[in-house]
């Protein structure tokens, strides 16, 4: 279904950011994408802050996927 395709993409993208497979993404992991994605360090910082909804400095798969589904389907559909 569409839903599982989105879940699969979410995991894929999460793993791109979580290079070491820690199970979470840190600010530093995000900055490592600087060379791979056409985003500035500041933009990546912004992305991290936006996704880190509880502000604890760690992005979990759950936080990441709610950000992704917001991007896919708009706010409020999680």
């Amino acid at each position: 279904s569409d839903c599982s395709a989105v879940l699969e993409k979410t995991r894929e993208f999460f793993q791109i950011c979580d290079i070491e497979g820690k199970g979470f993404i840190t600010r530093r992991d995000m900055q490592r994408l600087n060379g791979e994605l056409p985003l500035s360090a500041e933009e990546l910082e912004n992305v991290f802050d936006t996704l880190d909804t509880d502000g604890n400095g760690y992005l979990t798969l759950e936080e990441f996927s709610s950000g992704f589904s917001e991007f896919m389907f708009g706010p409020g559909v999680v």
Binding site: F13, P38, N46, V47, D49, T50, G67, E70, F71, P75
Partner: peptide
Amino acid sequence: DPNMKGAAANEGVLANFFNSLLSKKTGAP
């Protein structure tokens, strides 16, 4: 509402980020 403005700006950044990831996976080899 300044919060709405901030949310919209962040949405743009997120869209940019996820679009980049999407094109990274599906883009040119």
